[in-house]
């Protein structure tokens, strides 16, 4: 396909993906907003004052960046996994597979759809957080870059899950048993400095820790880990996930027999 045709195919796919999650906004945009507001109320307003300060900041201010990141992670992941698997389940993924659209365009289209939903939810949650606390922005570039890369990474992870999935159970197992524990133990609610040394070291194997801390650094200027190292880790994970997804789109028996 020529460049112009490739661009049309790519934008068609992205528009379709964005139209999908905006059409069902009651399922895609509203629930995360409600969930995160409940977190703000419980952990910020009710329990937060009793916890006191964390890393030199009121607990609500400390926890807000982590909660925003959690919303971005879960929504970018679940958008791609449900959309791609839904296409597989209905057979409509064949529309793309029989067309001349290259695999990398298919991949980028679904990923950008996931990023769009992740960031849309991120913006909604950020705006809602302003009702509970005052947000400071220490470094806008770090904030924007890490939230974008995180959305890309978890969109890719959602795609990998969807390619392997053969039932609706398969697309709920990873979010429930892998993604949620990684997020909750990724420094969203606490500083890893509070953990014993052994568990601090174990936490370093959790990729979510790097993203949450880099994002918090963008807002508050504080982080449990080195920011450069955080970006390197995220980029490495993205390269691995992208390469794997591209390979699977071309070779997986789950798509082409």
């Amino acid at each position: 396909m020529k460049t112009g045709a490739l661009w049309i195919a790519f934008s068609t796919l992205v528009v379709r993906e964005v139209r999908r999650f905006t059409r069902i906004w009651m399922q895609t945009l509203l629930p995360p907003a409600i969930t995160i507001v409940l977190y703000f109320v419980i952990f910020g307003t009710l329990i937060g004052p009793r916890i006191g300060e964390m890393a030199g900041y009121p607990y609500i201010q400390f926890v807000v960046p982590g909660l925003i990141m959690m919303a971005v992670i879960t929504n970018s992941y679940s958008n791609v996994v449900s959309s791609f698997y839904g296409n597989k389940f209905q057979g409509s993924i064949d529309e793309l597979l029989v067309s001349p659209v290259p695999n990398y365009v298919i991949l980028l289209g679904f990923v950008l759809g996931g990023v769009a939903r992740g960031l849309a939810v991120g913006v909604i949650v950020t705006v809602l957080s302003l009702f509970f606390t005052r947000l400071q922005l220490e470094n806008v570039w770090v904030t924007v870059a890490i939230v974008f890369l995180t959305a890309v990474l978890f969109s890719l992870a959602g795609l990998l899950n969807a390619i392997f999935a053969q039932s609706f159970d398969d697309i709920s197992i990873i979010p429930t048993f892998v993604l949620t524990p990684l997020t909750y133990l990724g420094g969203v609610f606490y500083s890893v400095d509070m953990l014993p040394e052994f568990w601090q070291n174990v936490s370093l194997a959790n990729p979510v820790l790097y993203m949450v801390n880099a994002f918090r650094y963008g807002f508050l200027g504080i982080s449990d880990i080195n920011i450069v190292w955080a970006f390197v880790m995220v980029l490495v994970f993205i390269v691995i996930a992208f390469t794997s997804a591209l390979h699977l789109l071309a070779r997986s028996e789950r798509l082409r027999s």
């Binding site: 396909m1 195919a9 068609t12 796919l13 139209r19 209905q90 409509s92 529309e95 067309s99 001349p100």
Partner: peptide, 19 residues
């Protein structure tokens, strides 16, 4: 095809995949 999409959208989207 995606059962939840409109008839027009399904066809026009397919055209987009062909550039």
């Amino acid at each position: 095809f995606n059962q939840f999409e409109k008839v027009f959208d399904i066809v026009v989207t397919q055209a987009g995949y062909y550039g």
